[in-house]
Design a protein around this nucleic acid. Structure first.
Lengths: 183, 183
DNA sequence: CAAGATTGAAACCTCAATCTTA
DNA sequence: TAAGATTGAGGTTTCAATCTTG
């Protein structure tokens, strides 16, 4: 493995690879912590103000941006970073709440689509206020605009290294492709 | 909230705050995606090679670095980014696997401590290889060393903005305090 | 009463198996 | 046979309530 870690006090004068004693590992740990706190905050605020979770909000968001405000289950899964069955259940909840409807895909009898209802659109609009506000407050405004660009590039690079498979182990629709605004 | 979003096609020529149409939001989405892919990969690799999950590995790691290779439950919770009950259950599993033991805190009769067993230390050592390797491959080496420093600072700033509370809503032991190496 | 920790119930997500259709 | 989606079962995490001790 790496060189010396504080675990095995072996004094290894070796080269670059990561040591658990870090310095370099600091960014990694910060990344984990920032993510944990951030999503917890945003999720809590969304639940308190609009009775939806962060994953639910993201589902509504992607549906809202999709061409007909409708999306195939698999596509939705790719964007929400959940497994196939994960989205099935997420959509179940949204349907139960009246925010989404299920619809047969006209071109493929196997296919199901999730469609945003008017109520869902309303909820999305009001929740967006809270969410964007939070992202601004806790993420955007916390870092220098120049650094934001650095982060943007870095995250993409990391995604590519780690990615290529979704939660089910299937190749992913390269979730980096541009998201089209709704007409 | 912000200004225009593609949701309501209102053309608002306003100032800085986030619009869901983004560009600026790109870093945020990249952040979420990078995290999702990264932890999934690392978790999968750890499970495959050493039969432990990423949270379990992190618990072992923090115990391994703690003064006596032992930590109070609450402190462990702070470092593993889990709620109090979350750690109780995590430690339950580790105890069941023989990697950790529970011990009465000598100075506080209410207190419980988790102590790394020899087997736990062995597991930690071998798993560290896999883990550090993964962090190196998917995170470190994916970004320019200079950018790594930027990320480090940014993540800290974000943590501070979003933080100050743990999963239970309690003020957190400022999880940024230095982690002492084990003697 | 407050703090440390655990427990029961419930929410959420994933894996593997299944069903239907291409 | 493979692809789209759902279902059953199981694992992990959290919330709220509880118990014990300071």
């Amino acid at each position: 493995m790496a060189s010396q870690t504080t675990i095995d006090a072996a004094p290894a004068p070796s080269a670059p690879p990561a040591s658990s004693t870090d310095d370099r590992l600091s960014a990694w740990r910060g990344f984990l912590q920032a993510h944990a706190r951030l999503v917890r905050r945003l999720d809590t605020e969304l639940r308190a103000a609009h009775a939806i979770s962060l994953p639910e909000y993201e589902a509504l968001l992607h549906l809202g941006r999709a061409p007909e405000r409708r999306l195939r289950m698999t596509q939705l899964a790719g964007q929400v970073l959940l497994s196939k069955s994960g989205v099935t259940r997420l959509v179940d909840r949204l349907v139960a709440d009246g925010l989404v409807e299920r619809s047969q895909c006209p071109t493929d009898a196997r296919g199901a689509e999730a469609v945003l209802t008017p109520a869902g659109l309303d909820r999305l609009r009001s929740a967006a206020t809270t969410h964007l506000d939070g992202v601004d407050r806790y993420f955007m405004s916390a870092v220098d605009p120049d650094d934001l660009a650095v982060i943007d590039r870095a995250m993409d690079a990391i995604s590519r290294r780690a990615g290529d498979v979704d939660p089910d182990g299937n190749p992913i629709a390269d979730a980096c492709d541009p998201i089209e605004p709704v007409p």
